[in-house]
Amino acid sequence: MQTITYRQALNETLRQELRRDPDVMLMGEEIGVFEGSYKVTAGLLNEFGPKRVLDTPIAEEGFVGMAAGAAMLGLRPVVEIMTINFSLLAIDQIVNHAAKIHYMFGGQASVPMVLRTPGGGGIQLAATHSQNFEAWYAYVPGLKVVVPSTPYDARGLLRSSIRDNDPVIFIENLALYNTKGEVPDESDDNDYTVPIGVAEVKREGTDLTIIAYSRMTVLALDVARRIEDEEGISIEVVDLRSLRPLDRPTIIESVKKTGRAVIIEEDWHSYGIGAEIAATIQEQAFDYLDAPVRRVAGVEVPLPYAKVLERAALPSDKHLTKAIRETMQGVRR
């Protein structure tokens, strides 16, 4: 095994996929000469040239729609949207076109495109640069939505996403790019993939299940480790990895085992991913619950710029710890 960053995992995987399949191409703002706003496409223009690594004008609806068009002809465009916030400028192309084309054409055309984009806050980029719209995309049948939390999953899911015949929204996280994790050495890699729609128990436990994804998985693992050390509570952490399709059986199996569930998500509390998970648990594991299902999520304001306000608005280890303790004590809110 080798230890690399989340950013490196994405960068190397894009390079491998561009080498492996001549139909794979990249497009987006600032991805060529500038190597991406978060340097995920570093070195790729040099290696693959401007035909396969295309710097686009600032025209999100235009180039996302263009990717859908190219994908219908069999190319596999991997589009970078600088931040998920700007994906809203392309949402008609994503929701009314890419997601529905295969269905509306009666299966006569596929749209094998990937839309890579980072979400998340915590680095003072304020209200229109720090949002979490995964719930918007996870809502839409016809899209697949993945949210890797580790370099290993980022690599495996990116491979699966590029090779998938349907449009995949691949959501990265600003605060994860520099995080490190183990991936196989090149010689042992065997071109592994992480299947879309399969969650993973990242940590086993018996007393309570935390359900998380993306950056919140990293936070949940830290909190679980600390609480077990300090308070002897055994916590299981389920990393969703995909939001659509959602791996309901893994969630249910874990909750049936532990009898308690806390969901943590970086997006806003109401109508978020947590609401869907909580509904699933009560539908399928109600009789196994020893306490109400709890959600820890972002405060419902546009994310402010001032550091103190931003910190107060984002879900933290403190909020999660409090929710875990209350759930263990069976305290109702």
């Binding site: 003072q124 980029l125 304020a126 640069h129 402010p304 710029y305 001032a306 550091k307 306000l309």
Partner: peptide
């Protein structure tokens, strides 16, 4: 600096 007396947004919006 994102201060409460920032006339643009009271510390809400980035520079």
């Amino acid at each position: 600096m994102g201060k409460p007396t920032d006339p643009a947004s009271g510390g809400r919006q980035m520079f």
